[in-house]
C-alpha cells in the first residue's frame, strides 16, 4: 500500500514537473523564434539613399557645366557696387524666390526648380580677419533632414572685373577697387583675391 501510494505521489509530481518544464520550453522556444522579427532593420530607408545620391550628383553637375564657361566666377562677381548687393537682390542681400539673372541662376532654375527641388546657395571664403566667412547667395528656407550638399571651388583673381546686370564685364570696377564688394582680399601681396567655395544645398519638397 505504501509503495503504491509512493508510486502515485511520485508519478503525480513527475507529471506536474514534466508539464511545467514542457510549458516553459514551449514558451521559451516561441519567444526565441519571435526575436528574429525584432532584429531585422527597416528596409524602407535604402530607397531614399539612391535619391539623395542622385541629387548630390545633379547639383555637382550643374555647377561643373556652368563653370566650364566661367559662369560660376561671373555669378560671384555679379555685384552692384552702388547698391552694395548682388544685382536685383531683395533687401536682405540675397536672392529668395527668383534666382539671379545670369547663367548660373538660369541653370539652377532649369535643372532644379522644374523638378520640385528646393535649394540654397552659400558662398564660403576667407573673411577679412582670416577666418572662414559664409554668405548666402540664395536662401529658400531651412533644409529638410534629407538635404544634400554639392560644392565647387572657384578662384577670383585681383583684377577680375565686376559683372554688370546685363552680363557684360564692367570697364572700370574690379574686385579689388570696388569698395562695397563683399569678398575681401585674402592675399594682399599676391595676385589671388580669394578662393570661394560655392555650396548648393538641395532637398526634395
Amino acid at each position: 500500500m505504501s509503495g503504491r501510494r509512493g508510486g502515485t505521489d511520485e508519478r503525480g509530481q513527475g507529471h506536474t514537473l514534466e508539464a511545467v518544464a514542457a510549458a516553459f520550453l514551449l514558451v521559451a522556444s516561441v519567444s526565441f523564434a519571435l526575436q528574429m522579427t525584432a532584429v531585422t532593420p527597416l528596409s524602407a530607408s535604402t530607397s531614399s539613399q539612391h535619391l539623395e545620391n542622385q541629387l548630390r550628383y545633379t547639383g555637382a553637375g550643374v555647377m561643373a557645366s556652368v563653370e566650364a564657361r566661367g559662369g560660376l566666377s561671373r555669378a560671384i562677381r555679379y555685384w552692384d557696387e552702388s547698391d552694395a548687393r548682388f544685382h536685383d537682390a531683395p533687401d536682405g542681400g540675397y536672392y529668395t524666390m527668383d534666382p539671379p539673372d545670369n547663367a548660373f541662376g538660369r541653370a539652377l532654375n532649369r535643372t532644379l526648380d522644374e523638378r520640385n527641388i528646393a535649394y540654397n546657395v552659400h558662398l564660403v571664403y576667407e573673411g577679412a580677419s582670416g577666418d572662414r566667412a559664409r554668405t548666402r547667395l540664395l536662401y529658400r528656407g531651412e533644409p529638410s533632414d534629407h538635404a544634400v550638399r554639392a560644392s565647387r571651388t572657384v578662384t577670383i583673381m585681383d583684377r577680375d572685373p565686376l559683372i554688370d546686370a546685363d552680363g557684360t564685364e564692367n570697364g572700370t570696377q574690379t574686385v579689388s577697387n570696388a569698395s562695397t564688394y563683399f569678398l575681401p582680399d585674402a592675399d594682399t601681396g599676391g595676385p589671388v583675391h580669394n578662393v570661394v567655395r560655392v555650396e548648393v544645398v538641395a532637398w526634395r519638397i
Binding site: T155, A186, D187, G189, G190, P191, V192, N194, V195
Partner: peptide, 9 residues
C-alpha cells in the same frame, strides 16, 4: 605666389 595662395585657402 598664386599657387601658394590657392593651395592654402
Amino acid at each position: 605666389a598664386s599657387v601658394d595662395a590657392l593651395s592654402e585657402q
